[in-house]
Simulated scan of single mutants.
Amino acid sequence: MEAYVDIIIRILWTQPQVRFSVAVGLVLAAVVGLLRARSGRSWIAPACLVASLSLTLGVTLFSWRGPGGVGPGPDPLSQCRLLVEWASLPTELRSPGGLLNIALFAPLGLFATLVWRRPIIVVLGAVALSACIEITQAFGGAHDCTSTDTIANTTGALLGAGLAWIVMSGVRARSPRARTPTDRL
């Protein structure tokens, strides 16, 4: 597991583009947080959503292959691995890249569900975002375009949305409900 953490840290912090996107995301998160706090609205989940979205986009859209990275070919989408090899899927999801994809999309699922309170819509949006990222990666040529990444991203979004749903259910169960006239009967 330590090797996985080292790989993920190397991916996140050795790339100037990723560091830049994280910095921009933190500034945007602070602005969102301040604006929402000034208006008296909840600010933590929206600010965290902006920060996690910027981290996700920074890691997935910027190259870490270095100057020798492969550019897009004449037909970029032909390079995508769209068929899922179900036998190797558990191994690929536990690889550093699979764990990184899950770890990137779990906070998105969590904070987006806390903000919009619609876990199914959030997961569907995460699937659409993941598909857009994979298509962009195919045209950019910096990353592999695979359906396994989309499955890992969706798994992360499902985990995050599920955790948010559990949290929201617990908060709802503990909050005092308003008494209605039928409660007195």
Rank of each mutant, 00 (worst) to 15 (best):
M1H: 13
M1E: 12
A3E: 14
A3V: 08
A3I: 04
V5E: 11
I7P: 10
I7R: 15
I8W: 12
I9G: 14
I9R: 14
W13E: 10
W13H: 08
Q15S: 14
V18A: 13
F20H: 14
S21C: 15
A23Y: 08
V24F: 04
V27N: 04
V27C: 09
A29N: 01
A29I: 00
A30Y: 07
V32D: 10
V32W: 09
V32L: 12
V32E: 08
G40R: 00
G40C: 04
S42L: 06
W43L: 01
A45T: 01
P46T: 07
A47S: 13
L49K: 10
V50W: 07
S52I: 00
S52H: 06
L53H: 00
S54T: 10
L55F: 06
L55M: 04
T56P: 01
T56I: 00
V59R: 00
F62I: 00
G68Q: 00
G69C: 03
V70M: 02
V70E: 04
P72W: 00
P74S: 13
D75K: 03
C80K: 02
C80M: 08
C80E: 07
R81N: 08
R81P: 02
L82V: 05
L82R: 10
A87R: 14
E92K: 07
P96H: 08
P96C: 04
G97S: 11
L99K: 04
L100C: 01
N101F: 02
I102D: 05
L104E: 02
A106C: 08
L108K: 00
G109C: 08
L110W: 08
F111W: 13
T113D: 06
V115K: 08
V115A: 08
W116G: 15
R117C: 02
R118P: 07
I120K: 05
I120G: 15
V123A: 04
V123I: 15
G125A: 12
G125H: 12
V127R: 01
A128H: 09
A128E: 01
S130L: 07
A131Y: 07
A131L: 14
A131M: 11
C132T: 10
C132M: 10
C132Y: 09
E134L: 02
Q137N: 08
F139R: 04
F139N: 07
G141N: 14
H143F: 07
C145K: 12
T146H: 11
N153E: 09
N153S: 13
T154M: 06
L158R: 03
L159Y: 08
L159A: 11
G160C: 09
G160L: 06
A164V: 03
A164M: 06
I166W: 09
I166H: 07
I166T: 15
I166L: 14
V167R: 06
S169F: 01
R172K: 05
R172L: 01
A173Q: 05
S175Y: 11
P176I: 11
R179D: 11
T180K: 15
P181C: 03
P181I: 01
P181V: 05
T182C: 14
R184V: 08
L185N: 15
L185K: 15
